[in-house]
Design a protein around this nucleic acid. Sequence first.
RNA 1: GCGUCUGUAGCUCAAUUGGACAGAGCGUCAGCCUCCGGAGCUGAAGGUUGUGGGUUCGAUCCCCGCCAGACGCACCA
Length: 610
Amino acid sequence: MQHASSFSADLTAWLAERLAAAFPDHPEAAAAARAVPSAKAGFGDCQYAGAMALARTLRLPPRKIAEAVLDGAALPDFVEKAEVAGAGFVNFFVKDAALASRAGECAADGATAGIPQIGAGKTAIVDYSSPNVAKSMHIGHIRSTVIGGAIVELFRALGYTVVGDNHIGDWGTQFGVIIKGWREFADMEAVERDPVPELERIYKESYARAKADPAWMEACRLETVKLQQGDPENRALWQKFISMSRHTFDEIYDRLGISIETTRGESWYQPQLAAREERLEKSGLAHESRGALVVDLRDFDPAAAEQSRKAVESAREKGDAESEAREDGKWICIVRKEDGGFNYNTTDLATMETRVKEYAPSKIVIVTDDRQIPHFQQLFAISRRIGLAPDSTELVHVAFGTITDENGHPFSTRKGGMPKLKELLDEASSRALAIVREKNPDMPGEEARALAEKIGIGAVKYSDMAMDPATTIKFSWDSVLSLQGNSGPYLQYAYARIRSLLAKYDATYPGEDRHGAPIATADPLERALAMRIVAFGDTVAAAGAKCRPNLLADYLFALAQQYSAFYQALPVLKCDEPSIRASRARLCDAVASVLKRGLALLGIQAPERM
RNA sequence: GCGUCUGUAGCUCAAUUGGACAGAGCGUCAGCCUCCGGAGCUGAAGGUUGUGGGUUCGAUCCCCGCCAGACGCACCA
């Protein structure tokens, strides 16, 4: 039997009923009903803290409200007792038997119990990773890739049909620069060896020449024009660059365990742009300004127009010509450049339109760094205004903080630049290998390398996912590659240790049935562990709804910590009482199931041994 | 100048989004029994949550003003 909901969710529903019954004239009381897990051990298992907030509107003391909720009512069957505490909190104590039963389900069914299927029948699009063709992926790309990948898995677990889309940068004026450079000074041996770094070198050098030499720049521009007009030779070169780049991206994705359903780069949308923008112009939603075709948010939004007018006025008073000149840029979105070309606004609007038409998604999630916040605010607002995205489609920009060097300064491309993603993964893997060899001297080389890869990659992914996406990350090799404490390997270790323990249990006590044994929660350590296990579903739901994998990472770390404390203090194999022994084994199994599933949602593998 | 994001223990980060005493890891210090895997466990020290106000029964969280840093602000994406 699967429970569709958690203790908190069941209590929330119960509270809503109780509040509706107790205060029929105040439906807002029932609407705000909410039970959450208690923060501290002494405050029960779940609590309701809404009575204080209602005191004003109901004109009653908070404790009276809390008492009215409980007064004469039958508690849900899983609740042992409920009491009013403190300023007006209601604390609920869950029955041991109910807790044991739900914790047991987590061991039995692979930890799917309690994950609410809020996405059933709905489609979500997740736009993530999005590297640029002809450039190496560096540590700046890891967040979008890893966080986006986790969001995809979280959505799937919640029942959504998910379409991951890799919106690669495969179009733009830089290709003329590369083509020109390729023709003049490409080093074919270097291309043969490792194409992308060579493409990067070609771009940098050609770009430097273009800045110094107008004739070179003009040549580059002409190559771009030829490419965009469909010249077969340039087209073929461009395809070649894309194919070489995608091959190197795929090597990284393979190692990271990321698989993105579709890859529609910017070029994919090019054929439809001209007609789209023409329609936009004819409909009057876009107009010409300084030679460009623009959509102006102030045309649709009186409040925006007023705010802008005031800003201009204030800038004028101060004689600040620069600010005045910049003001338009906040509201205007250029959809066709003065020279007739298109830019990323154009492409992004087309992308929005296509996604809505093709998938009718209930969510579109775009994962990029936070410098693009203004752009996506504008894009979302305009998409709504001109009818590209209906209200039924939720638009979410997951904006993550940029990665800085150890001093908190942005990585400068001049001074060596960001570490390459491949180097990071190699380093992670080799550091892990040293430890694996030390701990497992007898392990064959191939197996050790494979294990070290799982551990190293797990460490890298976890270190990113353990933080709120919004946090600006200070990059440090030691913290990214940490194998102890709050780290991926700590979780993997906890899992491997349980698997080993259970194997020994099965070998030592073949007659005992740990799968069907009732779970006893007599010891506080056992009880806390069981309570944590059953909170898995709610955690997945919260992490998914908020697009914050770190909520799940926090949870898993706390679970592993509680397990370690339990393991240290209470014997399992060496417990003399068979029923308690079986109960503890089953509890271990439940922890292992949840750890494995949770790590999988974060895209981290859980090795059986390490 | 305007806007966005960030500021929490020595360092790196959390805090169930307004709840009870702000928690972890690293580092430091003190411990872990011939006992299930020590990548582990237990404990200690470490805080006026940048700052000054406001709202609230209650603020790390919401509002306003400052300070500091990063990033944006018309044809690059």
